[in-house]
Simulated scan of single mutants.
Amino acid sequence: MPTTAAAIDPAVESKPTQRRLADAERTDLSELVDTDRYPLHDVDDPRLQAEIARVREDLDREGCAVLRGFLRSEALEQARQEGRELSAKSYYASRRVNAWFTSDDESLPEHDPRRHFMERTSGFVTRDMIPADAVIQQLYVSPAMKRLVAECLQEDEVYEYADPFAGLVQNVLPPGTEQPWHYDTNEYIVTMMTDIPDSGGEFQYCPNIRTPAGENYDGVGAVIRGEDTTTPRTLLLRPGDLQLFKGRYSLHRVTRVSGERERHTAIFAYSQQPGVVGRLERTRQLYGRVSEAHIEAEKRREERADGLLD
C-alpha cells in the first residue's frame, strides 16, 4: 500500500516536542498541578478557599502545613527524572555546624547549645543550573503559585528571590548524609520532595521552640543533645506534596538517609519584599561560591529586626 507524502515528510518526522518554559505570566498550571483539588486559576473557588483556610490553621498551630498530592502523577514523574539528572550538578559540602551556623565561642560554657556542633553533609543544585523547562522552575515563577503561597501566609504578595542561586534550589541528600538541627534565616520556606530514599530522610521539627523574644537555649539544647525526645515531631512527606514551613522559629532537621536512593527536595524561596539576596558567608558555605550580587548586598546589609542570633 502506498504511503502518503505527509507520512514520510522529514520535516514532520523531526519536529521537536514542545516543552513548557518557566513563564512569570503563566497562570494555567493544570498540566502540572492537580487543579481539580487545588484550582489555582480561581482563588475564590470554595475548594481552594477551604484548603487555604486549613493551611492557615495548621501554620498558626504547628508552624507547618502540607498540601497533599499537589503535583499530578505525570508531572511528578517528570520532576523525579529531572531531579535525578540535576543531581550530578550538586555542590556537596561537609562541615561541623551548630544550629545557628555560627562559629564556636569558647567564652560560653561547654554545655551551651551554641557549642554543640553536628556533622552536616548535603548537596545543592542552584537555580542558575536548573533548566527553564524544569517542572520546579515552571512552578516557582508562576503568579498562580505565588498567589497561593501569599494567600496561605496571609500576605498581600510574595516575591521571587533576587538571589541568582538561592531563589530555587534542589536539595540532594545521598545515602549516609543528613541535615542536623538548624533554623532557616527566612521567615518561611516552601518545599516539595520529588524523590524519596529507601529509608530514613525523615523531616522532624520543634514548632516555635524559639520566639522573637528569646532563643530558649535550655529547651533547644535539650533537643539537640537528645535529652528531649517528646518535643520533636516527625512529618510524613511524600513526593509531590507541597510543604509550607515557618523555619525561622522552629528547630528542624532531616534524619540520615539510608539505602540506595537519594532524597531530592525542591526549595521554593519567596520573600515578603522584592530584591532579597542571601547572606554572603552562608551562601559560600551552602553553595561553594558567591556572586557579585551577594557581595554588593552584604555591603548594604542591616541587622535583623527580631534580634535573634542568625
Score class of each variant (00 low, 15 high):
Arg54Lys: 09
Asp44Val: 05
Leu40Asn: 07
Leu40His: 04
Leu40Val: 08
Leu76Trp: 01
Tyr38Gly: 00
Arg54Gly: 07
Arg26His: 09
Glu31Pro: 00
Arg72Asn: 13
Ser30Gly: 12
Asp58Met: 03
Ala79Arg: 07
Ser30Thr: 10
Leu29Met: 05
Glu77Gln: 14
Phe70Pro: 01
Gly63Val: 02
Gln49Trp: 04
Gly63Pro: 13
Asp45Pro: 00
His41Gly: 09
Val66Phe: 01
Glu57Ile: 10
Cys64Phe: 09
Arg47Lys: 15
Ala79Val: 12
Asp60His: 09
Glu62Trp: 15
Arg56Val: 15
Pro46Ser: 04
Glu57Val: 10
Val33Arg: 02
Ala50Phe: 09
Gly69Ile: 11
Cys64Pro: 09
Ile52Asn: 01
Asp36Lys: 05
Glu57Cys: 05
Arg56Glu: 15
Ile52Trp: 00
Ala65Arg: 00
Ala75Asn: 14
Ala53Thr: 15
Glu77Ile: 04
Asp36Phe: 09
Gly69Val: 04
Ser73Lys: 15
Asp28Val: 08
Leu71Asp: 06
Gln78Asn: 12
Ala53Ser: 13
Asp45Gln: 05
Arg37Ala: 03
Leu32Asp: 10
Asp28Ala: 05
Asp44Phe: 08
Arg54Pro: 11
Gln78Phe: 06
Phe70Ser: 00
Asp36Gly: 14
Glu31Leu: 06
Asp28Tyr: 11
Glu51Gly: 02
Gly63Thr: 05
Asp45Ile: 05
Thr35Tyr: 03
Asp45Tyr: 05
Arg72Tyr: 13
Asp58Ala: 08
Ser30Asn: 11
Glu31Thr: 09
Asp36Ala: 10
Leu29Lys: 02
Leu48Gln: 08
